[in-house]
Design a protein around this nucleic acid. Sequence first.
DNA 1: ATGAAAGCGCTAACAG
DNA 2: CTGTTAGCGCTTTCAT
Lengths: 323, 323
Amino acid sequence: MKVKLEDVAKLAGVSPTTVSRVLNNRGYISDKTRKKVEDAVEELNYYPNDIARSLFKKRTNFIGLIVPTINNPFFSELSFYIEKISSNLGFKVILCNSLGEFEKEKSYATMLIRHQVDGIIVCSYNRGIEAYDNPRLPIVAIDHYLSPTIPVVGSDNYQGGYLAVKHLIDQGCKKIIHINGPGDLETPTQNRRKAYEEIVDNPITYELNNLFNEEETAKTIRKIFRDHPDVDGIFASDDITAAVCLNVADELNISIPNDLKVVGYDGTDTVLSLLPHLTTIQQPIEEIANTAVLILNKLINDFEIERNTESVLAVQLVKNSTT
Amino acid sequence: MKVKLEDVAKLAGVSPTTVSRVLNNRGYISDKTRKKVEDAVEELNYYPNDIARSLFKKRTNFIGLIVPTINNPFFSELSFYIEKISSNLGFKVILCNSLGEFEKEKSYATMLIRHQVDGIIVCSYNRGIEAYDNPRLPIVAIDHYLSPTIPVVGSDNYQGGYLAVKHLIDQGCKKIIHINGPGDLETPTQNRRKAYEEIVDNPITYELNNLFNEEETAKTIRKIFRDHPDVDGIFASDDITAAVCLNVADELNISIPNDLKVVGYDGTDTVLSLLPHLTTIQQPIEEIANTAVLILNKLINDFEIERNTESVLAVQLVKNSTT
DNA sequence: ATGAAAGCGCTAACAG
DNA sequence: CTGTTAGCGCTTTCAT
């Protein structure tokens, strides 16, 4: 059997209450009592049961993190910082990979609620998940509008699109094509596309149905080169897609940046160390994580805070040799 | 206040026990009672409190996952599969990034125990963490020897080293240099180095003190080219390091694969989609995850299983154009 | 400065 | 087939 508070109390010859007080540094305890208790804790190698504590306190210090997949540089960097900052605030992170699937996300959300998480950070793609509707449940969304009462954190997608396209134009591109995810999602990231379509004269956007299937991405890109042999600039809405562009271009002997210039999006450490040539729009990932966690923490502590907020953080162009 | 089982019982006009029985499908319940209860659950939008349930059952269905950093393709892919498989078995994963620091790992381990996790999967670098000593705590280590009673899962590092070096020799390399992490760690991954040093005549291994600091890696690699201008093959112990080699080579106008051939290690999806040219030794990451979770699950269910085991899975050479 | 007792929300004997 | 009761390990009034 696991050793429990009562065992410590017995060994120290005091009541459970006293042990609890020593453990939590609450109330007055004489030095000798404290010493006795500490020795007993040491001797028995006692670890307090946080499950029991959570039950009483109605606070678990757990937060749920729902991402499409951690196996992607953007989400892994984001998750890294979210976990880091949460951990500094005393929260533990439960990781959920929804793969963007409605059923999965729904069942994760339900699971998190049943486990009494103090709050949830969602970076996913689905609407209509009932579990999120509870107005007493603190939720922060990253780059997605879930409901009017759920704060959104993200970077300036319009500005990102603007910077990317403007840069391609400045570098002399005459025919710029944009590649993005499905257009039917109501997410702030559609503003990247919006910027592109507002700036360019005859905008041509190719949509990828499954951002996480790179073979399909490669096919779409080959089609772009077939459909538009005169394309001289590509603005991809993420770096992996941009990398696939570079690979397909290489395969077709298209010279970068002479014949074609490519700008990606995200600018994670991983991609930039693997592909230092890539010009990209860099999101302030650590700051996004920071902001999201801080807002969530506020929500957890003051239930009645302003919830209808959108935090928009600055992006920057990282110019390298693919443009 | 949150709605609880008792509220459901009252509304349905039955006892809490009956509600519990309906919820858990245990014992005999008449159809009308079940219906009444289900309606009440629906009406009140009731979610069972798994914290209370865990307290009673002494089973939380939580497992802890300690990685150095999720922000790295190998660990993010590994974590993805670990979470996926765990989730299929009904486990929830608590993510911990130790950054390889002893104090962090120790405090995460303590936290996990206090939260009553059912088990822990450790892919980290530190020995001497007392929390792991409890023989009743199910632990599985990935690629690290933590203690004789902790099962280890990993791929065949010796074979990986052998395949890499043999391949470089087959491709005509005369002077092959190896880059690895710190040599003072007792991990199976040192077998990659062992294979290299056994095969090559005058082995030269450069050690990286901090695998996650890529600027330092670049410096070390520049030094390699200065110290050994005649190097014609590099076997790097991970793909990120291999990528930095390629970048430094590019910077120094060293032509790949003519002047220099490079083999990496890990072969994650992310790296191979970003750098499809890279020749690498691919680890069976999904299988490692699978094996680790299944062993952990066994350990959780049968306390008295054989613990002194090492699972060694096969690797394969993925030949691309850096060799 | 310390202890006794009640209860957090749930489940499992044990009755009936 | 259903209810009563006790208790999981901890914290917190309320006494003393």
